[in-house]
Design a binder for these strands. Structure first.
Lengths: 339, 339
DNA sequence: CTTGGCACTCCAGTCGTGCGAGTGCCAAGT
DNA sequence: ACTTGGCACTCGCACGACTGGAGTGCCAAG
């Protein structure tokens, strides 16, 4: 039971500090939270918590603030993801309902997430890896160039300009289109790639080079990491919550947020159905060592296609953020499933 | 000649203040710039400049800083856009060369511009308004839904999911595709829209509703403002140059930068071949009253398709920014022309 | 019209000082 | 074995006074 109270104290410290952003002392603690004990008792517990490395004081004779380890403990053991209220659910659904476009869905999700959590939101575009090829369209741009447009089941569209070695005729283009679609349509892109690879061998000798280059471009477009790498960031204005001295705290974060490759690493390690929380220096990115990341996978039906989440100061409302991230991920998944 | 010196003083003040970010006094001024006169003389000139509203002092007994009006004067009369060095030109060309994709071009341009100017860069996607329709592709998604993909000469791709009232057959789809392309391909989108409008009347009574709804969706996709409205922002970390008190200065700017609609207004009023400079409160957006915008149109050949520019503190390096903006706009135009 | 001189202003940084929040420890109480 | 009130102690921080310096405006002389 003494253990229980210690944890209650930790929870209270975290909640208070998150709310006020100020180190919290024993006295204010017992005032605000109804722990049925005196400040002195709380002080003893605090000393113990400090020994365990869960809280720390910025300087002697200041209140305590949670350490990264303390937050970790809080998140792992002291928190249950609270469900969103019916009103919030309606708001989310309503906000995402109007989207008619993949871009639109992603865009709205970012905004929504940023607004709900009052933090920086990141949404990764649905990954190609697990989607199927709906259609491949080839359009002649000039005599030696064509545009390949790849339409995927997730609604994503990839495009490539391809230089071809021979002069393009309508017949050749038609043949190409037919064969490519026959081989690729309906397949998962990994399978489509192999199916396409066999194509050039099946056609007349004269057009083999053309087939080769086109197939290569289409395959490249399929497996292109750049497309997986697309992420959208929003709510950067919420970085204001970080407090002052911009240069040291916020600037590196903004820089990291522009490195989309970096963000993908951040989101990449999330598992599908669980909300992952990475606190402070736990993450792989130095520039974000003062921030926490709450993320989760999302996507149609069973397997996760992609990920979304929020980035904020370690001092953040974890339960709230986790709930919001989870809720948005679910709604986005539903919407993607429908279309 | 006294006028000449006054202007030289103004120029010197602007340059100094931009470089140091500190109010500049008469003494430091004569030291740094070789005006052949004494501080006292400069003081007289400064008093005159202040009367004219071109400079101001934050408080008595501090140096002077330029007012918005002063910057305006500086930009209009005291500055010639300096050409980029050969090395810089090569760097720009090299940076943009690798792009093979419209998205890529835009993305790289933003980065480049942000890096060159050390400020926030904004690039608007090429406008649809003046591009022509390359191809319209219709793909069946299910029995009553199809995906319309609109491929434009700029390389932009628009897509719409359309619900159709009748069951889709391959024949119907083929007919649709044929007719729509015949009407629209090669046309500017305004003309394509009218051409398409006539389509439903030319087909059999039974499929008219289908044609109507598909044509409507395609036309909507063409004229859709959302596509014109796409802008990409980069280099927000450079807002650190603003100095401190984040909340009051930087936060509203970040907020404004996320409102893409707002940014379009900002870019929208730029003329094609000239670099437009909007200083401080001259702009239409309150939140950006402490910033200046340097922008220009860009696009293939004669008519401007779109715009790009940078946003920074009024205290910015105008000649440098103008040069960079102009240079990048030119290179992007060239590249878009090629593809 | 320029220039040196001079009195004046006012910001910014420094140094003390006192207050208050918070702590740790101890002895007494339950 | 815990809890609790008391108490001395520690610092950070806000506040105020002070001062140095940069900068100004004005004036009279060149």
């Amino acid at each position: 039971m003494i253990e229980d109270r210690k944890l209650a104290v930790l929870r209270a410290i975290v909640e208070d500090y998150v709310a006020t952003q100020e180190p919290v002392g024993s006295k204010t603690l017992v005032e605000r939270h109804r722990l049925g004990v005196s400040p002195a008792t709380v002080r003893n517990d605090m000393a113990a918590l400090e020994d365990e490395g869960l809280i720390a004081q910025p300087h002697t004779s200041a209140g305590r603030i949670p350490t990264d380890k303390g937050y970790r403990f809080f998140v792992d053991r002291l928190t249950t993801v609270k469900a969103m209220s019916a009103a919030e659910k309606r708001a989310i659904a309503g906000f995402l309902e109007g989207a008619h476009d993949l871009d639109d869905v992603v865009q709205r999700s970012v905004r929504l997430l940023a607004q709900l959590t009052q933090q920086v939101a990141i949404v990764q575009y649905p990954t190609l890896a697990k989607s199927t090829v709906r259609h491949v369209e080839l359009v002649a741009l000039s005599t030696h160039r064509l545009l390949a447009v790849l339409i995927l089941s997730t609604g994503r569209v990839e495009q490539r300009v391809i230089e071809v070695p021979v002069e393009l005729t309508d017949d050749l283009l038609g043949d190409l289109r037919l064969r490519v679609n026959a081989a690729a349509a309906g397949e998962r892109i990994s399978e489509a790639a192999t199916a396409l690879g066999a194509l050039p061998e099946q056609v007349g000798h004269d057009v083999t080079p053309t087939f080769t280059v086109v197939v290569a471009a289409v395959v490249e477009a399929m497996s292109n990491h750049r497309s997986d790498e697309r992420v959208v960031v929003g709510g950067t204005a919420n970085l204001a919550r970080f407090g002052d001295n911009f240069d040291q705290t916020v600037k590196p974060i903004l820089e990291a947020l522009e490195e989309h490759v970096v963000l993908l690493k951040l989101l990449g390690e999330t598992s599908s159905d669980l909300v992952t929380v990475r606190i402070g220096a736990e993450g792989p990115i130095d520039q974000l060592s003062a921030t926490s990341v709450v993320a989760t996978g999302y996507g149609a039906s069973d397997d996760a296609l992609s990920a979304l989440g929020v980035v904020g100061p370690t001092r953040m409302d974890y339960p709230g953020s986790m709930a919001a991230v989870r809720a948005v991920a679910r709604y986005v998944s539903t919407i993607l499933d429908e279309s």
